[in-house]
Design a protein around this nucleic acid. Structure first.
Lengths: 223, 223
DNA sequence: TTGACAATTGAACATATGTTCGATTATAAT
DNA sequence: ATTATAATCGAACATATGTTCAATTGTCAA
């Protein structure tokens, strides 16, 4: 007969899992048993070993026996840049402001995109933010409903850069290639078959960021 | 006086670097000094240590002293899926065929995209391939010159999926949302302002793959 | 050729690190 | 309360692994 109900994973186990991820992210190699122990305030290495065995049986981690630091999360952590999705971007909405001092990096996967770091510019990755395109209003920027645009905050832009712009007078958000000339600004759609917009010098124009990347996921759109 | 010219990194060093990447990718932790030695056929641990010191001085790796497996590439390897770019996709060109038995995974970064694995569908990642869009011919699929399209090989498709299609009679490659009905096929552009194409039953049509993702990098388009 | 330094070797060493096991304590079902 | 099992502990153990050093060999420049 079963004398005890089989407990699932407790808070300690999750603490270990989180630590594994955190440590790996920081060091690029897994922690030792003793380092894990230190983190969860357990001195006995056999105790930690005990926890790890449980986690392994639960399929949460994998272990290489007799190998130092031979622990890893079963679903390995990727070395990717996690970019917070601040909100929607649409024609009638102002662009949300990104405050890098606030951590948007919650556990919630839904509010971040992970981009392979090799695809991103090297500098200032922690300031990048992402917006989810809503509606068809960005079609002239070759951007579709549901696309994720990754932006680098910027208030200025050079000619030819694709920027996110807020036009206060028109209450209009738009993504365009940016050109400045003596008469004002020229905003060119990415789609060459569409007409550029001319903004006179007098009209205000707020550049919110430069578009660094566009990501479109098309997993089983079908029913 | 200098008695010898200072040699740079030799083949051995690069072999070590490649091994570090390879080993890390496979084990999710770095190799030991002795494992490195085994790979480059060097028994003396001090010799390997010597190489590692050189690599460290050259800034190619980082080391944590007195820590097992405390070696890592200075530019850390990411846990991403490496997708080979088979070639261009353009209106007049047939779509290159992907043969997964051949390894396209050369050292050359130019011929692969790395995508954060969290962004990709879980299954059959090793069969994915990528094409670089050339020209404006895919504009009606909201895809721009220079974009990278990631495809999953497929000869069939369900309604509503975006597929890469080769139309032999028209010698035309195109990316469209795919619909089948009694009269034949309907290929809808992603851009709703454009007209769908109707393909009669009689006309041949080769589905080459389903579009899984579109990536657009826009780093400093400006001059 | 020869001097100077790089490269290589081998072995000893220190310790970082996983493993094992018996004993003890806590917990829940009976 | 009793009992079976889980959880915890501590210590000993085995070895995986980084470090060090003296000695040897190789190579280039003068």
């Amino acid at each position: 007969m079963m004398a005890r109900k089989p407990k699932g994973l407790t808070e300690v186990h999750y603490k270990i899992l989180r630590f594994l991820e955190e440590y790996q992210r920081e060091h690029h190699y897994p922690p030792t048993i003793r380092e894990i122990g230190k983190h969860i305030n357990v001195d006995s290495t056999s105790q930690i070993n005990y926890y790890l065995d449980q986690l392994e049986r639960h399929g949460r981690i994998e272990r290489d026996r007799n190998v130092s630091r031979g622990v890893r999360l079963a679903r390995p952590i990727s070395d990717v840049v996690r970019i917070p999705i601040l909100g929607p971007i649409a024609a009638g909405l102002p662009i949300p402001v990104f405050d890098p001092s606030v951590s948007y990096l919650t556990d919630d996967e839904a509010f971040a995109v992970e981009i392979a770091s090799s695809l991103l510019p090297a500098a200032e990755r922690d300031k990048l933010f992402a917006l989810e395109v809503q509606g068809d209003s960005m079609i002239d920027a070759m951007i579709n409903d549901g696309d994720i645009v990754v932006l680098k905050p910027a208030a200025e832009a050079h000619n030819g850069e694709m920027v996110a712009i807020w036009l206060p007078e028109r209450e209009e958000t738009t993504l365009k290639y940016f050109y400045r000339d003596k008469d004002g600004y020229l905003l060119k759609p990415a789609n060459p078959s569409m007409q550029p917009i001319r903004i006179p010098k007098t009209e205000p124009l707020e550049i919110k960021g430069k578009v660094v990347m566009v990501v479109r996921r098309i997993e089983s759109v079908a029913a």
